[in-house]
Design a protein around this nucleic acid. Structure first.
Lengths: 149, 149
DNA sequence: CAATTAATTGAGAGTAACTCTAATATTTTA
DNA sequence: TAAAATATTAGAGTTACTCTCAATTAATTG
């Protein structure tokens, strides 16, 4: 959609937003329906008109969702933004809490990555040296007869 | 549940597994129902008996799920393990693909972390210097009258 | 400029992966 | 041995999409 304003003002269709932000159109609409973009304008024919400012909002919503903030909490954050300056402290807390949780997630992923790398080497070794998968309990003797309850 | 075997053989209840692996009992049962643990024994009274070997399987399932491998793919991996040595190559590919995706996820989270840190500083600045939230479009003039379609 | 073709819309069904509840059975503890 | 804690399954509920569909609306093209 081509629309002209003063110099540096563009309007994006939902498709363009989806491409630009790497989020599906469905998800953008779902987020819009969830009240995450209370500021988006519509054309007279009801079509959503995203401007560069709106993209910043899509960006922060995407950020919060990607790091696992649940929808209700995202909505809360958006609502606080709409209310304005009196809510800065609560928004600050949301952001710092989210930051800490994101750091923990990164740590968790890095730990799981270590296990994946161990497994990778383990399989590599089997493939390269034509070995048996000794770790797999399926290759071990059944322990059934040992069980005593 | 206390059960004796030879020296180094212990049995864990589902509760103990949940605590040890930091996964809810519900989730362990859900995974079991999904066929992720085809090797777990049961007592005569139908109670699941996890041994140390089983914990290793819970560990790899947890790993795959945490990094976002979907259930169907986890099941596939487990099935390949059960089939045995002939499936090493496919398992190797699953692990390396998952490793790459995990690295990408870590990168993505680190990028989002930068935005969160920017926001944190932004709010900090407002709080410390008693400023207005100039970024918030709610504080800007309405652009409504500028829109031309 | 009419007619395809492409994009947008909302409603609502479908899906994944839990998460929780409830009724019942089993185990542990006092 | 009675009460409290834990285990079991089935199945309902939840979250956050994801997809389909029919109806509009917009863009392209002969």
């Amino acid at each position: 959609m081509i629309i002209y304003f003063q110099e540096d003002f563009y309007i994006y269709t939902i498709k363009e937003v989806a491409e630009k932000m790497d989020v599906s159109e469905h998800t953008i609409r779902f987020w819009a329906k969830s009240g995450f973009f209370p500021f988006i304008k519509r054309s007279q024919t009801n079509i959503r008109l995203f401007d560069d400012n709106d993209l910043e909002w899509v960006k922060i919503v995407k950020c919060l969702r990607v790091v696992g903030v649940e929808s209700k909490a995202v909505k809360r954050y958006i609502d606080l933004c709409v209310i304005g300056d009196s809510t800065i402290e609560e928004r600050y807390k949301i952001i710092t809490d989210t930051k800490v949780k994101t750091q923990q997630q990164i740590k968790e992923l890095m730990e799981q990555l270590i296990l994946l790398e161990y497994k990778e080497k383990f399989y590599q070794n089997i493939i390269n040296n034509n070995l048996e998968d000794t770790w797999n309990p399926m290759n071990k003797l059944s322990v059934e007869e040992k069980v005593v309850i």
